[in-house]
Write a protein that binds this DNA or RNA. Structure first.
Lengths: 190, 190
DNA sequence: GGATGTGAAGTCGTTCACAGCT
DNA sequence: AGCTGTGAACGACTTCACATCC
């Protein structure tokens, strides 16, 4: 909307766009502050700023990808990250020589693949705050332990395995096969 | 548990494993039937069978991947699908010649990449029930329209864009940047 | 007039607590 | 005795409906 030059937006418009109830939009936004003007709506620019601030997207998040297989190298090449203030600043694998060819061929080697033993050192050096785990499921907990040891408090896990971490650390899972299972369930019961 | 030779399992064990409440496990399972035995627990083999049946995972789901970029070719190479009765039987792109090299190099060409114009014909031929969309966001709705036209009722969308489909069709999104945003939010507010 | 902010009502899923089987 | 199945209490989010303010 900002790009399209819209100045103000109502909760009804936002609700329509997101396919939710207008009251939900107002309550959710209001939870974080009074961003709107009665009788007017929400100023697009202001609202965008506030949402980014609330979500913590007004600063750069520095990311490491661990496990440079098919998925890992896809993520390294994923340009849309930059739009959202995410920056992949390191890549790790248990066997860097094996994967370097595949990765550099795609990217012209903007991020060197390092051996996982160097995680702790590099996390400190490059101020990494989030780790994306794209290893096989069997290695996930071990990698998570390395990240915890290096004080990386946020983990995004793509492998189909549960992770446990100490308090103060956060794990979010991207289990697309679970979503696919959900889809299969819905299709079975139409 | 089945692989480990466990014969019975209690709701408490399952709850512990999944980090949820035991009553939730019982209520959820009971919603679909009385699978347990009072005083005993759930028979592992039976429960597994029932869960698969309920979720529609007792039959093979035939999948097409549309958009063979980095992510698309990763999915083509994703072996774990087979464990869960999913089978990728077709791959489409707007420019097959461009991507064939990259894909076959990884896979030895088990699934030929076809031009998207052939979706309707191939869906019928290969009895495809689910489409995985991994194109750029700008193309998502157009691809969804093609799938709807071909009567593919289930869509798993990996691109960051909303899709609308007619009633009777199901779309599930895998927006990993949304999950990453959620992670950033949680890290901002510890 | 018109859209936000917000108590109150409504809805849905979760958790408790125990009756009912084995 | 032990664990499921389940009514009842609880809690959290959603939606309604309107007072409030521009």
């Amino acid at each position: 909307m900002e790009e399209e030059g819209e100045k103000v937006v109502s909760s009804a418009q936002l609700a329509n766009e997101c396919i939710v109830n207008a009251a939900t939009v107002r309550k959710d936004l209001n939870y974080f502050g009074e961003f709107g003007t009665r009788g007017e709506g929400y100023d697009v620019k202001d609202l965008l700023y506030e949402i980014k601030r609330v979500l913590g997207l007004n600063k750069e998040w520095r990311i490491a990808v661990i496990g440079i297989g098919n998925l890992g190298s896809s993520l390294l090449a994923y340009k849309d990250f930059l739009k959202q203030n995410y920056r992949i600043v390191a890549a790790f694998d248990i066997d860097p020589p094996k994967v370097i060819g595949r990765v550099s061929e795609k990217l012209g080697k903007p991020v060197e693949v390092l051996h996982i033993s160097r995680i702790k050192e590099v996390v400190k050096e490059r101020k990494i705050q989030i780790g994306l785990i794209t290893t096989p499921a069997s290695e996930v907990q071990a990698v998570a332990n390395l990240l915890v040891e290096a004080k990386v408090r946020g983990i995004l896990n793509f492998a189909p395995a549960q992770i446990t971490v100490p308090k103060g650390y956060v794990v979010k899972d991207v289990f697309f096969t679970t979503i696919l299972d959900n889809l299969a369930y819905l299709l079975s019961n139409i």
